[in-house]
Design a binder for these strands. Sequence first.
DNA 1: ATTATTGTACCGCCTGGTCAGTATAGTTGT
DNA 2: ACAACTATACTGACCAGGCGGTACAATAAT
Lengths: 184, 184
Amino acid sequence: MITTQNKPTKEKIIEAAYYLVRSKGITKMTMEAVADKAGISKGAVFYHFSTKELLIEAMVKQLFNNFDSQLNQEYENEGKLGGRTQSYLKTTFLMHDQEENELSVALLAALVNNPDLLKPAKEYYEIWQNQLENDQINPVIATIVRLTTDGLWFSELFGLAPIDKTLRDQLYETLSELINSAKK
Amino acid sequence: MITTQNKPTKEKIIEAAYYLVRSKGITKMTMEAVADKAGISKGAVFYHFSTKELLIEAMVKQLFNNFDSQLNQEYENEGKLGGRTQSYLKTTFLMHDQEENELSVALLAALVNNPDLLKPAKEYYEIWQNQLENDQINPVIATIVRLTTDGLWFSELFGLAPIDKTLRDQLYETLSELINSAKK
DNA sequence: ATTATTGTACCGCCTGGTCAGTATAGTTGT
DNA sequence: ACAACTATACTGACCAGGCGGTACAATAAT
């Protein structure tokens, strides 16, 4: 009851925060700027997130929850040997096609403000890595798949020789084949 | 007077800056803290780097120059088909074994303060990616190698399920084999 | 009326950057 | 030889602006 009432404003705040980090850079994500972008006052922002760290924590958690559930959803349609690896590959590539990479944006915001905020992210990653290493295929191949997609993020996050669409499509296919050929 | 290792002040400043970012986080890399760590006054720091951006620029440039020359040095002993890819793989893995990953640390410091400071990094990356795509082997494989090692950085930078030594060694071998099997 | 939410005004701290001046070593003029 | 001057390296005190956070009044919701 209370939670449903809180939702809209809280989400507006989080969205505003994303927008700022993505378009203006992390340093411009001030609580006042967030308030302006969300169309409310600074006091209201602090009412919902009594500290900046709590806001960032919410950003990180939200995104990782989304990603994880999308991962699991994909997995159910997949199953079988190398299924989790296939899901990971598919989900990350899907994510990339849609808009900006909000995950790394949130990670960055967290890292800059307080590395402890990365904790939920770390926990998820441990789970994923574990799943990949026990996916009934060669764990080294599974790890290559994970790291390649992470590297894709990295390159886009920093804008360091980002991979264009055609090469990315080829990447997807080659990695997918790699998974299939690694089935025992 | 025996040659007392009296490093130039500029280097001491840069080293102090690295230390701070690496151990305390980016936010703690203030010009005052750098001065303290370097054992000089704040004014002295600004004497050598009239702005914080210039200091960070120096950090980024130095590291990328080092990396690039190490890359080329490795390449000379290598040559052949897929030589550049092999060099890239080797150099990054060597880098990882020694100390912390200062490259990404510098990148982060740059990104946080002013994305323009990434320019030299971008230029190098464009060159590298270009070399990899024209290495007389399947460019997709070459790119996978690059992105996997970048992903390795990423995971260490954020501490997200970093890869342990044994798996990393296996990664190296598998990637190396992948390069060889991609020779035409 | 009571509670939940939001606006306004403000505070204290930190940070990048400035500035006037100092110390020292080398150079020049006489 | 000696004073005057210059260049380089550095100090320490200071400032203006921005930021997270607070206090409290005002309004909206139940």
